[in-house]
Amino acid sequence: MKKVRTKQVIPLFMAGFAVVFGWVGVFKLGFWNPDQGPAPGFFPSIMAVVMFLTSILAFIQSFKEDGTVKYEKQELLVIASGAGIILSTFIIGLVGSCFLYIILWLKVFEKASWKDTLIILAVVAFIVIGVFGLWLGIQFPLGLMEYIL
């Protein structure tokens, strides 16, 4: 278990985010046009100012908060698997990536039996191919297969 002080990092990130959006809003997009009234930067700039001020307040308050946030390795594994699906989509396509992910997750991580794995795979295949693919007509990316086919 790692102890990360994200309670301070998040408000600082938000404040930085607000500064960028506020600056772009006022100086690049424009705040007020004398002829046409509010310019494209009008609304987001005001919101960015409020966000900046409250983020600084949240940053100060974060030092008074009790406890630190704990992140578990297993939680990061889910994030890694999501990233894995996205990356492998460019090689074996979206449907192939999803199926591969199901098999790997259930067999390697959950140590599930082949019977359970195949049942889950069949249910997912019904939803992905049957409902989304055939009925709703969604054409999923095929990755490198697209070039081969």
């Binding site: 889910v78 992910y101 199901i102 997750w105 599930a112 889950i120 939803i127 992905v128 999923f140 990316p141």
Partner: peptide, 18 residues
């Protein structure tokens, strides 16, 4: 739950693509 996790993940991926 251990079987729900991969199923929901796939529905999230496919749903957002669709």
């Amino acid at each position: 739950v251990k079987y729900m996790i991969p199923c929901i993940t796939v529905v999230c991926v496919v749903g957002s693509y669709s």
